[in-house]
Structures are given as C-alpha cells and as structure tokens.
C-alpha cells in the first residue's frame, strides 16, 4: 500500500539532553596546566610517544602513561583545512568567513594537536609553517584558554 506524502509529518522534538561528564584526572591535569599557560602531554613508558592532551592509556602498547611532560608552545603545521561550512547540532551551515583548522606538531614524539590557525590568509596557509600558541588574556583552566595558533 502506498501512502501519500501528505500523511507524513516531520516532528522536531524540543528536547535537549544534559550530561554530566567527568573528565578524569588526566584531562583535569591538562586544564590545570592551562592556568600556567602550559601545554601538557603524557608520555608512554614503552614507546616514548606523547599524547596531547594527556590520557591514561597508550593503546598501541597497552601501557598506562604516568609521566606528564610539558610541550613547547611553538610547532609545525603538519596538515590543515580551510573550512567554508560549520556543523551546528548536526546541521550543515555556511560559515561566515573561511577559517583555518590545523594539525600541529609541537614535538617530534608528540601527537598532532588540532587547533584554529589565525592571523594568516586562508589561501596562503602552507604545510610546514611554524606556528605558536596564543592564549586568552585571562586563563582560568578552561578548554578555551588556549585560544588559537598563529604564524611564529
């Protein structure tokens, strides 16, 4: 039996769920580092690689990472994309202006850190650029303290 299109409705459920995520000791340490304008990572005792932000396990070695290390504030842009859209609550929308997201290497052994890259024309961004961290004026141990990176 075919049903005509008119008999269907599109309900939009006016419901927002609230979750209380515990961030755990590693992410807590990372955000505490922000208060001193420090970027911290955790080092795997087996392979020596550094996870930024820090976390408990190195999945490759199945080892608990206990050692915290401070990373330099300057690094290399390893990969980037220029965004022309944004995703907001699962919906695709046009961005107000093109913006740059970069994967940044702060240390040879460290994982790449994803961040906004500002202060550069999106059409002139290049892999291998040197970039440095820019902090908010008042750091308070929040995710937004490390505001963006800019050309060094």
């Amino acid at each position: 039996m075919e049903t005509s299109e008119a008999t269907f409705i599109t309900p939009v459920v006016p419901m927002d769920f609230t979750y209380n995520y515990r961030i755990g000791p590693y992410m807590t340490r990372y955000l505490e580092g922000f208060k001193e304008r420090k970027i911290l990572g955790s080092r795997c005792p087996a392979c020596g690689r550094i996870a930024v932000p820090p976390r408990k396990y190195c999945g490759v070695c199945n080892k608990v990472m206990e050692e915290m290390v401070e990373l330099p504030q300057e690094g290399t842009l390893e990969n980037f994309t220029v965004g022309h859209v944004i995703l907001e609550k699962g919906q695709l929308k046009a961005a107000d202006a093109p913006y740059v997201l970069g994967l940044i290497r702060l240390d040879e052994k460290a994982s790449l850190l994803l961040h906004r890259v500002e202060g550069v024309d999106p059409s002139r961004v290049e892999k291998g650029m040197k970039v440095k961290a820019v902090w908010k004026e008042d750091v308070e141990g929040d995710y937004g303290d490390l505001d963006h990176f800019e050309p060094a």
Binding site: T10, V12, Y19, Y21, R22, I23, G24, M27, P53, L87, K89, G90, Q91, L92, Y143
Partner: peptide
C-alpha cells in the same frame, strides 16, 4: 536523509570531554 540533524550521529562519537 530525512533527518533534521544528519551529522549529529558522528558528533556524538567524538570525545565528550575534549
């Protein structure tokens, strides 16, 4: 396709604490 928020599915796969 008929979703109001077709990309929410993957957004919720990302780490909620980072």
């Amino acid at each position: 396709g008929s979703q109001v928020s077709p990309y929410l599915h993957v957004e919720y796969q990302l780490s909620p604490v980072y």
